[in-house]
Computed example of a mutant assay.
Amino acid sequence: MRISLLAVGKLKDAEERAISDRYVKRFNGAGRAIGLGPIEVRELNESRAASADERKCDEAARLMKDLAADTFIVALDPAGRSISSESFARLLSEKRDGAVKACAFLIGGPDGHGAQALRPPAMKLSLGALTLPHGLARVVLLEQLYRAATILSGHPYHRA
Rank of each mutant, 00 (worst) to 15 (best):
Ile107His: 01
Glu143Ser: 03
Ala33Pro: 12
Lys124Gln: 12
Arg159Glu: 07
Arg147Asp: 08
Leu11His: 05
Arg62Thr: 10
Ser4Ile: 09
Gly135Leu: 05
Leu91Trp: 12
Val140Gly: 04
Asp21Arg: 03
Ala60Asn: 09
Ala117Leu: 09
Ala30Lys: 10
Arg32Lys: 15
Arg55Val: 07
Leu11Phe: 03
Phe72Met: 11
Ala60Ser: 15
Tyr157Ala: 00
Lys56Pro: 05
Leu36Lys: 02
Ser51Val: 05
Leu142Asn: 04
Arg22Ala: 14
Ala137Arg: 05
Gln116Ala: 15
Asp58Ser: 14
Ile83Arg: 10
Ala50Arg: 15
Ala115Met: 14
Ala129Ser: 15
Lys56Thr: 08
Asp21Pro: 01
Ser82Glu: 13
Pro120Ser: 12
Arg119Asn: 14
Arg138Val: 11
Ala115Lys: 14
Ala30His: 09
Leu127Tyr: 01
Asp13Ser: 10
Leu132Phe: 12
Glu43Tyr: 07
Glu43Gln: 06
Asp70Ile: 06
Val74Thr: 06
Phe105Ser: 06
Gly108Thr: 05
Asp97Asn: 08
Ala129Ile: 13
Cys103Tyr: 03
Ser20Lys: 12
Pro120Tyr: 07
Leu91Gln: 10
Arg90Cys: 11
Ser153Gly: 04
Glu94Met: 01
Leu106Thr: 06
Ala7Asp: 04
His113Ala: 06
Gly108Trp: 06
